[in-house]
Computed example of a mutant assay.
Amino acid sequence: MTQQVEQFIIHGLTKTGQRFRPSDWAERLAGVMAQFRPAGSSGGHLSYSPYVVPVNVDGVRCVVVDKRLRDLEPLAWKFVCGFAADNNLQTSERVVSPAQQSEILA
């Protein structure tokens, strides 16, 4: 059986439906979190962590956070969750297969 990947998604919309600014917020947040990687992996030059990835979902900037980050670095997990809460952003959760996770990172 293939292990499923749990994700926490931060949407670029406030709870009142307003677009979150600045427009590059997702890339900035993912850039701050770039150092958190699976053991033994190297990110190379200017790459995001596979645990915190900026994406577009239905035309809205989002950040997909792999819940394994919580075990890897609890303070980093607390930071991304706090970012969403402090900025009153919409969030959701989902479970995907490793193949779907790979598509997101491509």
Rank of each mutant, 00 (worst) to 15 (best):
P98W: 02
A84T: 10
L29C: 02
L13T: 14
G12N: 06
R37M: 08
V52Y: 09
S92Y: 08
Q7W: 00
V5M: 12
Q3L: 04
V5D: 03
R37D: 02
A106P: 01
A26W: 06
D66N: 15
P50D: 10
P50A: 01
H45G: 13
E93F: 05
V53F: 11
G59R: 01
F20K: 07
D66E: 10
N56V: 03
F36D: 08
Y51Q: 06
M1V: 12
T2R: 14
P38T: 03
A76T: 09
N87Q: 05
T91M: 05
D71K: 13
N56Q: 14
S47Q: 15
H45R: 14
L69C: 04
V5C: 12
I104Q: 06
D24E: 13
K15G: 06
G12F: 04
D86K: 12
L105W: 14
G82Y: 01
L46M: 15
Q90A: 13
V55C: 06
W25M: 07
A99S: 12
G17N: 03
V65S: 00
R21Y: 12
A34Y: 02
V96N: 11
D24T: 04
P54W: 01
P54H: 03
Y51E: 03
F8W: 05
E93S: 05
G82C: 04
A39F: 15
A39K: 14
D58Y: 07
M1E: 05
C62H: 09
V55N: 06
F83I: 05
V55D: 02
C62K: 11
Y51R: 10
Q35S: 13
C81V: 11
Y48E: 07
S92W: 05
S47V: 07
I9S: 00
R68V: 14
V63T: 04
V63P: 00
Q90E: 09
E73C: 13
G40S: 00
V32G: 12
F8G: 03
V32T: 14
V55A: 11
V57N: 08
T16C: 01
P54N: 01
T91D: 05
P38R: 10
Q100C: 03
T14F: 07
T2I: 10
G44H: 02
